[in-house]
């Protein structure tokens, strides 16, 4: 072990701030052994193995010959037109979702931050979308968007916003946004909880000081609440971007990438390449590109926001 982190100043300060901790590496590693063994098998091994596969031409339709091809798989997948379609769909889906989730969650958090009767019950019920399986979420919205008897058509017909039932998911211009809507609905609760806990940690003194200085309600919100919420926003944006970029379940249930590739996101491209074309080498290459993109995204969001905040 060449790891010297334990001696770095911040850690030392942290350790001296707590009362007393024993130095006992043998027991520590013994206690860590099970978790390390499990993670080595179920995460480290697959990640490394996936990299290995991505350099070979592995096709289940041709099981006996699996030659080494170097970076050919990567070159091949990025040269496909569909790859760039998938990239643009994923970017749109992620951007729309993250922005909408953050805004809706902020609004609900502002509501739940007020003192009123029934607030606790409301907060508990907020967990319902978070708890339900994504498959149930998918079919619930599939039925709402249904082209003849769906609730969306029914509601809009009743209020007179449309004069005939529309095939919502069949319209390439709307599909991705409708899927994003289902995703947003399910992810808003977690985002709300994270923003709300940050909101509750804002010291009341800040508001008092702002009021004494003559700030009105809006000014207090803009100059006290919003800046203080930045850590919460950052957490929500990074986490939701990572979840949105890998979204698969809703695509599978609602549209299977269609119509006309309108919802053909990266994870769907990986699924098709791997399990429909049975080309594991290129599938692994695509997976690696997505994994690296996710890492990079998290890193850049944290850096960009971290610097500005």
């Amino acid at each position: 072990m060449t790891d010297d982190r334990v001696d770095s100043p911040s850690v030392v300060r942290r350790l001296s701030s707590v009362v007393w901790l024993p130095y006992d590496p043998r027991t520590a590693w013994l206690f860590l052994l099970p978790v390390m063994a499990v993670l080595a098998v179920v995460t480290v091994f697959p990640i490394v193995y996936s990299l290995y596969i991505s350099f070979f031409s592995v096709k289940l339709t041709r099981p006996l010959r699996q030659p080494f091809v170097g970076f050919d798989n990567y070159l091949q997948v990025v040269q496909e037109e569909l790859f760039w379609v998938a990239v643009s769909r994923t970017v749109i889906f992620t951007l729309v979702s993250v922005v909408a989730i953050t805004v809706i969650a902020l609004l609900i958090a502002l509501l739940l931050d007020q003192a009123f009767r029934g607030r606790r019950l409301l907060g508990a019920l907020l967990l319902v979308p978070w708890a339900i399986p994504s498959v149930a979420n998918g079919l619930m919205w599939k039925w709402i968007y249904e082209s003849h008897y769906g609730a969306l058509n029914g509601l809009l017909l009743q209020v007179g916003a449309i004069d005939h039932a529309l095939a919502w998911l069949g319209d390439p211009a709307k599909t991705l946004l409708l899927i994003a809507n289902a995703f947003i609905w399910k992810e808003v609760p977690l985002a709300t909880i994270l923003i709300l806990v940050t909101m509750k940690s804002i010291p009341a003194d800040l508001y008092k000081a702002a009021t004494v200085d003559g700030a009105n309600r809006l000014q207090r919100f803009l100059h006290v609440t919003l800046p203080a919420l930045k850590p919460g926003f950052m957490l929500v944006i990074v986490f939701m971007a990572m979840v949105a970029i890998r979204q698969f379940d809703l695509i599978f249930i609602l549209t299977e990438g269609g119509p006309a590739y309108a919802s053909h996101v990266m994870s769907w491209q990986i699924y098709v390449e791997t399990f429909r074309n049975l080309s594991f080498g290129t599938g692994a290459a695509l997976s690696y590109i997505l994994a690296i993109a996710t890492f990079a995204l998290a890193y850049f969001i944290i850096r960009a926001l971290g610097q500005r905040l």
Binding site: F45, I47, S50, I53, F248, I270, T274
Partner: peptide, 13 residues
């Protein structure tokens, strides 16, 4: 942080 779908291929094999 690794997306589930990136684990699918190695897991399957």
């Amino acid at each position: 942080v690794v997306p589930d779908i990136a684990l699918v291929v190695p897991f399957f094999l």
